[in-house]
Design a protein around this nucleic acid. Sequence first.
DNA 1: ACAGAAACATACTGATCGGTATGTTGTCAA
DNA 2: TTGACAACATACCGATCAGTATGTTTCTGT
Lengths: 210, 210
Amino acid sequence: MNAQTALKPAKAAPKQVLDAAASCFMEKGYAGTSLDDVARHMGATKGRIYHYFSSKSELLHAVRKRAMEINFAAITPAFDSEEGPVEKLRAMARAHALNMMREQAYQQALFDRLNLHITGGNRADRDVWREEFMSDRRAFEDMFRAVLAEGQASGAFKIRTLSYALHAVITMLNSTISWYRPRADEPENTQAQIADELVNMTLGALGVNT
Amino acid sequence: MNAQTALKPAKAAPKQVLDAAASCFMEKGYAGTSLDDVARHMGATKGRIYHYFSSKSELLHAVRKRAMEINFAAITPAFDSEEGPVEKLRAMARAHALNMMREQAYQQALFDRLNLHITGGNRADRDVWREEFMSDRRAFEDMFRAVLAEGQASGAFKIRTLSYALHAVITMLNSTISWYRPRADEPENTQAQIADELVNMTLGALGVNT
DNA sequence: ACAGAAACATACTGATCGGTATGTTGTCAA
DNA sequence: TTGACAACATACCGATCAGTATGTTTCTGT
């Protein structure tokens, strides 16, 4: 068993488990979801879950890890572009806003237990992956932070306290997970429209007149 | 037993239960909190809780009801003022933002299960108080909606889609519950400063140049 | 003074759920 | 062909927890 084998991309089965878990966590919350719920959602039993994950909290961790990967992948192209801060932020914000609407299940799982990590939370959950997760989150925020700082320095953004502005921006872009739900009968471009308006308001909040 | 007696303001004991519940729900979430936890937090036992509330979900409902009362009380004075839409929104937004930082425990309980009501959620919880709660929430949002609509009509606000703007505004003002925690060593005016900056960014998002 | 009700505490139960131990079936290399 | 392991399913256990049944004490009106 070499590195090639070990790092083989996730096969179908584990991904199915992750999807089912993310979906259940979104609907009923982490604590409110039993592993039997997750199994039933796949048309399987607990045996399948425990074959790939050693505990419920590890399953949550895997869902969150996947969610973070999705988030990084969404904004990295825009971040690596050669644009100035305003256009770069616009592209990143738009990509992130769209991403939040497309991957609601994983994102919801991300936010569910996040608050419990800020405060106390359960001991068993906290110990294991807290550090890794916080550092991922910080790395993600830092990408936005860098762009905001650049725009602040160049005078493109009117920012008083950078950390407050950062929180406000990210919160606004994340906001759809708490009020938007895709509907079958909605127009094709609904998500794009929402994203555009959120991006415009975000830039307005930073003093960029559109 | 007349109306006077029935509507007597809550005595000390039930309020203590509510405070303990709100505090526990904030720390560990609703599903993650046992009634023994709540009782222990008061230095009491379950008997005391069940003397005032008939079930766990009724306790949550009571916490949320109290949270909504607090929220209405915070913004009503500003809403009833004779100011124009910009200044009126500024005052309401500031009052709400401060309120969110001062009453974190109750607000957190409000948001915890809120998402589960948007989607499916537990049947037992849902049935009973869903309608009442959604209507309270809508009434609260309508106060902001009215001011936004007024400012949109007068041209003071640049708003494309009112419902999106409303969500964005409220989300931004609520955002502190997910990133701000009061610290003992923070300057006296920290909360006021945060509130002011959030309000400025909110107005900026609506196209008001500050 | 005392009856009864309010305000709890104590002790228990039934159901749920995370986790484990064990069984069953397909697959694949030697 | 066979045996060894992967990929599950089934059955069960122990802990937790919402809810209840039943005390016990303090107040309160008469």
